[in-house]
Design a protein around this nucleic acid. Structure first.
Lengths: 204, 204
DNA sequence: TCATTATAAGTGAACGTTCATTTACTTTAG
DNA sequence: CTAAAGTAAATGAACGTTCACTTATAATGA
């Protein structure tokens, strides 16, 4: 006898399986039957929980886009200079994101499609990181700690570097990373970035 | 009466339209009918030139994969130090790529989909740039011009920065770039990169 | 030169399949 | 018993693909 799940659990199960499939194959790459099969239910079940395939897709995407990282610990749990705080924030960010590669995949998809989802991704996931950089640089500029610099370009560059780390760690199957972990990569790109904008690097 | 194109021209037309559509919507996002419609011919025509939809797709990708920038001029047409050569190579690379945004889109798709056909495209396109960096850094390491550095990480970082420029210039519709051109962005990220790996920046 | 002919290019309807979605019915738990 | 949770089967539309056919173009021969 098959166990019957409560509506809420079934819903969650459907969304989990959908997320996996949509991330890897895209909206048009997966059929409703395949999703149902992955959930081990008949296709009709999906329609008791979601209006349509597209509605399910949107909900999955939206769910991912709205997740937010919590940086409170990152800021408080160590040295409070720019480099160290940014390091801890980035590690938290990257670890949170690559926990499921699907989230990274879906973000990249939304980047290509250029839909509104992309903005949601940015404002929920990247904003914390980029605002911290932007405000810090602005302040350093005013106090003369740093030479004149294109803040926008700096933020853009750091995002690019972090995204590359996420891609390397979560999408490159080949595992040719030499087994290097999140900390190694983040430290590596962060130091490149810091030297790049003429700030002192991590002191360890 | 409609004009009839020669096989070669029709083939080229089909591939051009397909590229546009595949880039924006992906293999499963476009139907054969839509491609035919874009070419203003009946669907059957596609099958006189390509075995199947998938074969057409592969050929489009493959076509992109085989394009390669010519860096001879870049190397010869100015100062021959690492920074200046890399600058000129990068400008050529970026200009060539963003000439059609579709190529950039397809590359991003290939990152996500991770299939082998597209892998080829990816590695081939960046090869010129990344090999130049890799070999140069290796040489500087041996001659002691540069401190010990993770070459792989450096190459990865530069690719990330260049890709970000491409994305900004060719996918971000919002045009909030302040109208800054390729040269500005390339110079910006290149200097960040050079300082990042402790090499002298562009001298102008 | 100009009708004749051969062939390459293109058509449109229809094929079988798969798609997303719905309907009518069955099972299970409280 | 009954409401919720499930199923199997069926739907029309859209899909990729093929087929029998027409039309434009170019080569031929008198």
């Amino acid at each position: 006898m098959k166990p019957k799940l409560k509506a809420g659990q079934r819903r969650a199960e459907i969304m989990e399986q959908s997320k996996r499939l949509f991330a890897r194959l895209g909206l048009h790459g997966v059929s409703v039957n395949e999703i149902a099969e992955a959930c081990k239910v008949s296709p009709a079940v999906l329609y008791q929980h979601f209006r349509s395939k597209e509605a399910l897709y949107e909900e999955v995407i939206n769910d991912l886009a709205c997740e937010r990282e919590d940086y409170v610990d990152a800021v408080l749990s160590g040295p409070s200079d720019f480099a160290n705080v940014l390091y801890r924030m980035t590690v938290i960010f990257v670890k949170g994101r690559i926990r499921d590669a699907d989230s990274v995949r879906i973000e990249l998809r939304s980047l290509i499609d250029g839909d509104e989802i992309q903005e949601k991704f940015f404002s929920n996931h990247w904003k914390g990181l980029s605002e911290y950089i932007e405000l810090s640089l602005q302040e350093m500029k005013e106090t003369g700690t740093i030479k004149s610099i294109d803040t926008r370009l700096a933020v853009l560059s750091y995002i690019a570097l972090v995204r590359q780390v996420m891609i390397t760690l979560s999408l490159d199957e080949q595992e040719g990373n030499g087994g290097a972990g999140v900390e190694y990569y983040v430290k590596g790109i962060l130091n490149i970035f810091l030297r790049g904008i003429e700030l002192p690097t991590l002191d360890w």
